[in-house]
Write a protein that binds this DNA or RNA. Structure first.
Lengths: 225, 225
DNA sequence: ATCTTTTGCGTAACATTTACACAAACAATA
DNA sequence: TATTGTTTGTGTAAATGTTACGCAAAAGAT
């Protein structure tokens, strides 16, 4: 038992993990194995320990529940509604992640009965206020993809221009002219063509790669306004 | 006394309140009246109550310590380093605010010995990890001012174009061509000239006003990419 | 060999940004 | 009153970026 002079809230972390399978934007969810909301789907996450930061807690819980580890996560909002958990006062610090879906095998463990990818437009009923968290995460994703090269975290090391365009179109809900999109991307200077060619039905396309160093170099030197 | 089955962190809120006095960007700080860090300067903030959201807690503490109330605040990051408070494990949810400095009278109260504006480049030694919080708030401010019309929250209802430009120059650390800046701003469509004229040394300039409705209308219709 | 699909490149029209020039409207001063 | 200095609003040409297309090349399918 732990006692305090003043009341303290419990603190959890939750991860909104986005994946891309080539045509759909997907979200990683777990089925809750314990109450409350047992049997309902939820974001991977759980209680933070006292000897770890929120980031560390979020990554530990993600690994425990889905076996995914060693990915980059980014805090985006802390949800503090008074009655968001029926047990006691619980805040949750929410994180965003974008990963190459095929690179990580998802295996449920511990408190999670199952762990599974869901297309973003076909989500099941969710536990707690996780619907709100996902809504805010999607807004953040739309914002970030327009100003930062996060699409490439969802793709393999090498990718075709069509794959990039599909991500932008799925996330932003718009279509773009293929030829202008191609020019715009290559003009950025950090989308580098490689020697490899993609095989498919039509003319083979160049495989590109994202040059993170060149990107970082650019944002250092860019004018802001 | 409050007891829990598992350890719980304490949770505080902190407000990074920016003000503008016509030429300098300023930050609102309080002098701590109690330990730890008694006598050191700190961000206004304090422990969150169990029956309030983080936003409500932040605004309550801000009013208690500086008498400033009824302002718009916005959560930007939660700081979770394990040893950021010497007493116990304490997380802090940090908020950003931009206000018309002259509109609000700052009066210290309660746990604060003093409350005072400091130029952003002449901050005193700070308590806790508040230096880090302010650094991140400044980054966020630079990011936001380039993509959102937050400069007008720092200005009076009517303002000259020179005042707007000064804010952009101070925040971003760059200078802009006065004539192009003027055109760019008026071209936005939501910076409206009024009939009033500003009096000063040279030719009197138009007083402008920020039309929030027109701005909101625009972001609804804009193309994202 | 021909058709269909997909990719890469080109180009003209249009829009935006940048770097200035210049005059108008005031206060201060001679 | 006339001149000077300061600040503001508008104009404009050159450079740059965006948009809407046309077209041919390179593959698989028929």
């Amino acid at each position: 038992m732990y006692t305090y002079k003043y009341p303290h809230p419990a603190v959890t972390t939750d991860c909104v993990v986005f994946g891309f399978d080539g045509s759909n934007l997907n979200l990683l969810l777990i089925e809750r194995g314990i109450e409350p909301f047992k049997g309902k789907w939820a974001l991977p996450g759980g209680f933070m320990n006292m000897d770890e930061t929120a980031e560390q807690g979020a990554m530990r819980e993600l690994q425990e529940e889905t076996s995914i580890k060693d990915i980059y996560i980014e805090q985006f909002h802390t949800f503090t509604s008074v009655k968001r958990d029926p047990r006691e006062r619980v805040l949750t610090i929410a994180f965003l992640a974008f990963i190459r879906q095929e690179k990580y095998e998802v295996i449920a463990g511990d408190d999670a009965a199952k762990a599974q990818w869901f297309p973003i437009d076909q989500l099941p009923e969710l536990a707690f206020d996780h619907k709100d968290i996902i809504t805010m995460a999607l807004d953040k994703l739309k914002w970030k993809i327009t100003y930062e090269p996060i699409a490439f975290r969802l793709l393999n090391k090498t990718f075709t221009m069509t794959q990039v365009q599909t991500i932008y179109e799925v996330v932003l809900g718009q279509t773009f002219d293929r030829r202008n999109f191609h020019k715009k991307m290559t003009a950025l200077g950090y989308i580098i063509p490689t020697e490899m060619q993609s095989r498919g039905s039509g003319r083979p396309g160049t495989l590109f790669t994202f040059d993170e160093d060149k990107y970082k170099e650019q944002i250092e030197n860019k004018k802001v306004f």
